[in-house]
Design a protein around this nucleic acid. Structure first.
Lengths: 190, 190
DNA sequence: TTATTTACGTCAACATAGCTGACATAAATA
DNA sequence: TATTTATGTCAGCTATGTTGACGTAAATAA
């Protein structure tokens, strides 16, 4: 049933019944920060659209992207560690991980100390894919940073970090943070 | 089949075959901005986790959140306009919109000028839900902004805006941008 | 040694949220 | 009158998440 504008519509009726349409837009009067809420939505929507197009060519989705990204950033991490970062169940991971293994983007290496562990490494093919996915995102970021002053980068990083649950910020700190000379060898020795 | 560390593992073998595991972590050497790529991922992951918990109590998901949010921010917008903002198909929208109509969070009003249009309005119930979902997100943002200098907010907004596809930035400008006195009446007259 | 716990894999069933394609209807417009 | 537009709807498919149950090998505790 459609509310005809002449039936229960507020405009002519002015009845403030239970299900009357609310006409005034929700604004920041109530102290809510709509500008940043919405900017985050739009920014993230377009930020993820870049890799989506590349992934589609491989028959992959965002789930594959996340897996291949973190395996490349933390080579040698275990399945359990990856689940921790992604915050999904092992059954969810299993599907996409299997595909990435089958297509030769990722390989598993049995842990030496703990042979129950399956340490995940990218192959050269997996590394290339990960870089290809990151490139357009990085270009988008570089463009957006041109709109702000030098030195504002630090504020942006601090803000984004502040948006993360405090107990999960350790995950960020674990990632390699250098543009400096590479220190070869496993991300973390196993 | 698992790569045993003694079989084709690079460590002992040092063979650089096709599918050899890559041991060195992907870093910013190649000019890619990993810190911000990852901060966006983690920030958005936790940013959306707040409303997810509330939505679960209603049997709703993120799709419902987006719909109820934009209907509250732009009361009277048409189905076509909503599809434009959400960038999804009408079949996708249909399911969640039907639920929000059935549960009395949103009502439709036939357009007066163009009677084919179904203009969407929140009910008081829908307005309350939208505010309840926005509240924890706004609190998270306020906390994160405490980590930066006053005046950095503008840089953050500019950066996020710069992340959006230029041709879609008009969508942001359409949203009400005031903390100022409300100007009652439809978001845009129909 | 034996028992338990841990890391991982897998099967089955299910839910959400997106998609394409096809078709219907009412209202606006040419 | 014919066509286009705004919207709704049916059917089926895909991707990505979930829970629950069970199995196996290896590490660890008793």
């Amino acid at each position: 049933m459609i509310h005809s504008s002449g039936a229960t519509g507020k405009t002519e009726d002015s009845a403030s019944s239970e299900n009357a349409p609310v006409n005034d837009p929700m604004t920041g009067e109530n102290g809510i920060d709509f500008p940043i809420i919405e900017l985050l939505f739009f920014a993230y929507r377009d930020f993820t659209s870049d890799p989506d197009q590349i992934l589609a060519q491989y028959g992959f989705g965002r789930a594959h992207h996340r897996v291949v990204h973190f395996v490349n950033r933390m080579p040698g991490l275990t399945v359990a560690e990856l689940l921790d970062v992604l915050q999904i169940t092992k059954q969810s991971l299993a599907r996409v991980l299997k595909q990435l293994l089958d297509t030769g983007h990722i390989v598993q290496v049995q842990g030496r100390q703990d042979r129950r562990q399956r340490k995940l490494y990218p192959t050269p093919k997996g590394r290339a894919l990960s870089l290809a996915l990151a490139a357009p995102q990085s270009r988008r970021i570089a463009k957006a940073l041109r709109d702000v002053e030098q030195g504002d980068r630090q504020a942006i990083e601090r803000f984004l970090r502040g948006m993360v649950n405090p107990e999960l910020r350790a995950q960020i700190d674990k990632l390699p943070h250098g543009n400096r000379a590479k220190d070869n060898g496993d991300y973390r020795d196993g």
